[in-house]
């Protein structure tokens, strides 16, 4: 029960295998990110504060995999999310910015998140969220037309996409041709129903992977987002990867 010194609700936070992501070890383990804006929640998520040995405090925000496909992919065991401290990320389908805020935590003050969302309704929340997080550049524009926002975006290390559109592969390819470094990476969430609701999910994922391969993408892994999302997969890979020099070809 309670009582004793400092009670029984002490939480220990440990680094996750993915740099910039942490695990809060309490009664139940939870995925967390280090809050870039301590004292503020973005979408009423819970926060936990941990005291360092030197007395300083660090605040973390709980990252709910039922509300974030990226968090679901991490818990699904994805090998690499490529989003890490200092990274520049182009985020397509930013919605109200809940996941974007965690990506902003991960890349930290030296990283940048270009967050593209077309819907004005969620765009308002996104713009408001970005006011407090200066590593997030909000872009209310149609991800189908990257030329429209070419003045706002630099070259990026990673494209994350969650646009839930039938032509998502084409949208990601077009954005990559403008903004993704050669040797950069993509992480895309595919909702089978949004692409083709008549085929089995696995067949849809396969055909999407094939479309990506035709656009200079090299898919490296695929994880399902079960049990957090139904018929969703997350595909991760590289873009314009350097050709390995052949042996004997000096």
């Amino acid at each position: 029960g309670r009582g004793g010194m400092k009670g029984g609700n002490k939480v220990v936070v440990e680094p996750h295998r993915h740099e910039g992501v942490f695990i809060g070890k309490g009664k139940e383990d939870a995925l967390v990110t280090k809050n870039l804006v301590p004292g503020e929640a973005v979408y009423n998520e819970k926060r936990i504060s941990v005291q360092n040995e030197d007395g300083t405090k660090v605040e973390y925000r709980i990252w709910n995999p039922f509300r974030s496909k990226l968090a679901a992919a991490i818990l699904g065991g994805v090998d690499n999310i490529w989003i890490k401290p200092g990274a520049k990320v182009l985020y397509l389908g930013a919605a109200s910015g809940t996941t974007v805020s965690h990506v902003s935590d991960i890349v930290g003050p030296t990283g940048v998140v270009y967050a593209v969302e077309f819907s004005h309704r969620s765009g308002r929340d996104l713009v408001n969220m970005a006011k407090k997080r200066t590593n997030v550049i909000p872009i209310i524009e149609d991800a189908r037309h990257p030329a429209k926002y070419r003045m706002l975006v630099g070259m990026v290390d990673v494209i994350f996409s969650d646009v839930a559109q039938p032509d998502q592969a084409r949208i990601v390819a077009l954005n990559a041709s403008y903004f993704l470094k050669a040797g950069g990476h993509f992480v895309i969430s595919i909702k089978a129903n949004c692409i083709d609701s008549t085929s089995p999910a696995e067949a849809v994922f396969q055909s999407e992977v094939k479309k990506l391969q035709e656009e200079q993408f090299k898919p490296a892994e695929q994880v399902t987002l079960e049990p957090f999302e139904r018929d969703h997969a997350c595909v991760v890979g590289g873009y314009r990867m350097p050709k390995k020099s052949k042996a004997g070809n000096a």
Partner: peptide, 20 residues
């Protein structure tokens, strides 16, 4: 410098879009 310019412009461009 460039990121600062992108940040300021991204906000003003987007705020105008959502009709703030």
């Amino acid at each position: 410098d460039l990121e600062k310019a992108q940040l300021g412009l991204g906000h003003s461009y987007s705020r105008a879009k959502v009709k703030f």
